[in-house]
Computed example of a mutant assay.
Amino acid sequence: MTISDVVWYDEDAGPLVRLYARVGGRAPVPRDDIELGTLIHCVPDVAAPPGLSADQQAVLRLTRRPIALPEIAVRLGLSLGPTRLLLGELHAAGLVRTSRPAEDKRGSSLPVLQRLLTGLRSL
């Protein structure tokens, strides 16, 4: 159980605070570069300003090493939308950076995709 779970979840009652309350009712920052495969990492040697939320502080701790958006969302116990919001705000503040994983140079030919689909169906 993560620290976020302890604060925002009660075993008997379920979620104690709705998601929009955890992000202060803010709307997501439109960021096209924060996709599912995007790696997020904190900017080294930058001190976090006072007044960050518990979730923003947790993101900064998690991003000491490169980590993908879905993994951050899972560890915070948030859906992707609020997680993107937190990451967008931290990126705008210059506290985190984003990078995309290297693209596969082999390409995605139709026969390869068909073999993959056949293999998945056989499972």
Rank of each mutant, 00 (worst) to 15 (best):
E103L: 15
S53E: 15
T98N: 07
Q114E: 03
R61T: 00
R84H: 03
A48V: 08
L69I: 08
A54C: 05
P15K: 06
G25N: 11
R115H: 10
L39N: 12
G37F: 06
L123S: 03
I34E: 11
T63Y: 01
D10Y: 04
P66C: 06
I72E: 10
R64Q: 10
R97K: 12
S108R: 14
V43G: 02
G77R: 02
A27V: 04
G25H: 13
P50N: 12
D45F: 02
L117C: 06
D5K: 02
D104F: 04
S122T: 02
R61I: 01
H91A: 01
A102I: 03
S122C: 01
V7S: 13
I67N: 04
A54K: 08
S108D: 12
P50V: 09
V112P: 06
I67R: 04
L52Q: 08
T118H: 10
P49C: 00
D45P: 00
R115P: 00
E89H: 12
R64E: 08
E89D: 12
L86D: 09
G24Y: 15
P111N: 01
R22D: 07
W8P: 03
L69N: 06
T2P: 01
G107S: 09
I40H: 13
G88N: 06
Q114P: 00
R100Q: 08
S79V: 14
G81I: 04
D32A: 13
L85Y: 14
Y20C: 11
L86W: 08
Q56P: 03
L78D: 12
D55R: 12
E89G: 13
L52N: 07
R97F: 05
L69S: 09
L120M: 06
P101L: 08
E35S: 09
R65D: 07
I40W: 05
A68P: 01
W8H: 11
P66A: 10
S122G: 04
W8Q: 02
G14K: 12
L52M: 12
G37R: 10
L78H: 08
I40L: 15
L120A: 09
T38P: 01
Q114D: 02
G24V: 13
G25T: 10
V17W: 07
R121V: 04
H41T: 05
T38S: 05
D55Y: 13
P49Y: 00
L69V: 10
S53F: 12
L16C: 12
V29P: 10
W8F: 10
V23S: 08
Q114K: 00
L80Y: 15
R18E: 06
R61Q: 01
L36P: 06
D55C: 09
R97C: 10
L116V: 13
D45M: 00
L117E: 12
P15N: 00
I40R: 10
T38F: 02
P15M: 00
E103K: 15
G25Y: 15
T83E: 10
G107F: 11
L116W: 15
L87P: 06
P15D: 00
Q57I: 03
G24W: 15
L95S: 08
Q57W: 01
P82L: 02
D5W: 07
L36M: 04
L85C: 12
P49I: 04
V17H: 08
P44M: 02
V96T: 04
A21N: 11
T98A: 14
G107Q: 05
V59F: 02
G37E: 05
H91V: 00
A73G: 07
R18Q: 07
